[in-house]
Design a protein around this nucleic acid. Sequence first.
DNA 1: GGCTGTGAAACATTTCACAGCA
DNA 2: TGCTGTGAAATGTTTCACAGCC
Lengths: 229, 229
Amino acid sequence: MNRAKGSFGALVGQVFAIRSGTMHRLIPGPTVRRLPRYLRAIRESADPTSPISSEEIGAHAGVTSDQVRKDLSRLGSVGKRGTGYDIDRLAGVIEHELGLERQLTIAVVGAGNLGMAIGGYPEYQGAGFEVAALYDINPNRTGGSLGGVPIRHMDSYLADSVGHPFDIGIITTPAEAANEVADVMVEAGTRAILNFAPVWLGPRGIPVRNVRVVEELQILAYYLRKAYG
Amino acid sequence: MNRAKGSFGALVGQVFAIRSGTMHRLIPGPTVRRLPRYLRAIRESADPTSPISSEEIGAHAGVTSDQVRKDLSRLGSVGKRGTGYDIDRLAGVIEHELGLERQLTIAVVGAGNLGMAIGGYPEYQGAGFEVAALYDINPNRTGGSLGGVPIRHMDSYLADSVGHPFDIGIITTPAEAANEVADVMVEAGTRAILNFAPVWLGPRGIPVRNVRVVEELQILAYYLRKAYG
DNA sequence: GGCTGTGAAACATTTCACAGCA
DNA sequence: TGCTGTGAAATGTTTCACAGCC
């Protein structure tokens, strides 16, 4: 498999791709993946009124203080030497960088156990997200609602998206359905995909991330075997 | 934050740590994380009787063929030049490397929506795992079963582990409870932890991996903003 | 004095390119 | 001829060490 380098193509592992238009200068992937951890760390900080040090952020995020400083310095000079990082200021900068100032809408496709669990997740408020709807193809599951969020038939996904496409589509269907669902999402203008189905979603021109429980277990199994034989 | 380099300490991001004893030569982390994808790719191969090429594996796993060959070459010389990789042989080698030959037992702590979804996941058979029990602190949730798997009170976790500790403990509790649960797991001899609670679990001497839905969404938000402004 | 910000060094991973074997 | 296996080069990331500022 070959791929134009430096292009908009999907990147390995943590996949994403850019639909079109100008590519901005991107922060390194590992740094982007740590930013949410820093955000949580400073929000859970013991004293929100006094500045926090890279040392303390690192302790809460499981990262060295060097790494924290290096990462944060990419967001501009945001700390104060001799003092640390102002919590509100830093939270604002990270949220801005991650694009969390605007509330992002989510559609969850697959109203099974996992979909219901994720659709009903209580942490979205304050994190910048709002679940707008759940979808399923099984009419027995549709029509109701989950904590005020309607559960609709997948057939209406496209129509529901007209005028206000979802920012993120979460796929919690069985493996067989995932590619089809992803196609519908792209067609409907959904802007990014978080996939929980155990399949590889090929590049579709929008950012895609995959979370696969079984693979996580298998990775753990490796380290487990190395540690215990 | 400073940490002895090359030690058994927790590694950043994809955390793991080794309890004690000899450290084996480890395959690079990125490679380990791709192996389960290769395993799935070859299992879903069009024709299981004829050999598969690195090109085809890569296409199914979203990785370049170079990368596939480099990764697989770390497991020893397992392919045939001019031909490709024998599917059964390769699957066996990867499974061996990942330690999937022995069935691993899982305990899920937190019998809420997410715990039930993960505890009832149908893909474990064939992937090398078996959910042995679910646990919760809420007596209203305990006592029953989920597809034959008993739901027990967390108080009995320690006693249940005597003689046959769980290989992997999955934490699906709220954030506040996660650290306490992790402590119990370590005390009970649970050998690795997969954490879904939105907190950083500090190093505990056993391999730990974290999956956090909100962080995944925030990472997506970043690329989404870069793509669409 | 204390803590950030950042070049430079060290280290890790991926890509390239091709030798080697079926 | 076709595809693997692998050194070497290119690239990316983390760690180090300290200058710079509050």
